[in-house]
Simulated assay, not measured.
Amino acid sequence: MAGTLSPWPLTKQGAKEHPVPTLQYLLRARGHSVAVDGIFGPKTDAAVRSFQRDAGLAVDGIVGPHTWSALIIQVRRGSEGDAVRGVQEEFQFRNLSGDPSKGLAVDGVFGPKTEAAVRGFQSALHADIPSVTVDGIVGPMTWQALISGMLSF
């Protein structure tokens, strides 16, 4: 729908592929040791429940709007770590070449290529959603658009 962000996805045990790797990177950024394998299995479920408990959220193992909003970490040029890997994973998800080497490297370093990808994504969103700022910073709106799968084909 033009003019609004897509809603946060509901992600729970049994889910595979997008956005599970991003969820796993964000859990790691929040201090939970989970493998980034794209499978929402028992260990990811336990990490989600632990995060929900620590954040004072309903502990149901379902990653919906409240859990995603609490889980995301604002990142920008110069940021490093698993939250940046989550952003880069989102751009790898949108890499339609079928060749991971042609997409953005998932290296955890928010450098010029990551910033350019973020700005390009924000520019495309801004065309439909004027409230999206093109600043190269991955804050709540940009995270939501990425994780909800906007502009992916």
Rank of each mutant, 00 (worst) to 15 (best):
L27Y: 03
V138K: 02
L151Y: 03
L146K: 05
G61K: 01
E80N: 11
G111R: 13
D99K: 14
A117L: 10
Q122M: 02
Y25M: 05
P65G: 11
L96H: 10
S79F: 10
S152H: 12
W143Y: 10
G103S: 10
A46H: 00
G64P: 00
Q24S: 08
D37E: 06
F91M: 04
F51W: 06
G149M: 07
D107N: 14
T44Q: 10
A105K: 14
G139Y: 00
G86A: 15
K113G: 04
V36S: 04
G103W: 02
S101V: 15
T67I: 05
A29Y: 08
Q52S: 08
K43E: 14
H18Y: 14
V106Q: 05
I129S: 04
D99M: 10
Q74L: 05
Q52E: 14
Q74I: 08
D45W: 06
R49Y: 07
I147Q: 00
R53S: 15
A105E: 14
Y25A: 02
A145M: 04
L10G: 13
G14A: 06
I73P: 01
G3Q: 01
A117K: 12
W68L: 08
S148L: 07
V36P: 08
D60S: 11
G111H: 01
S6A: 15
A15Q: 05
G81C: 09
T44G: 00
D107C: 07
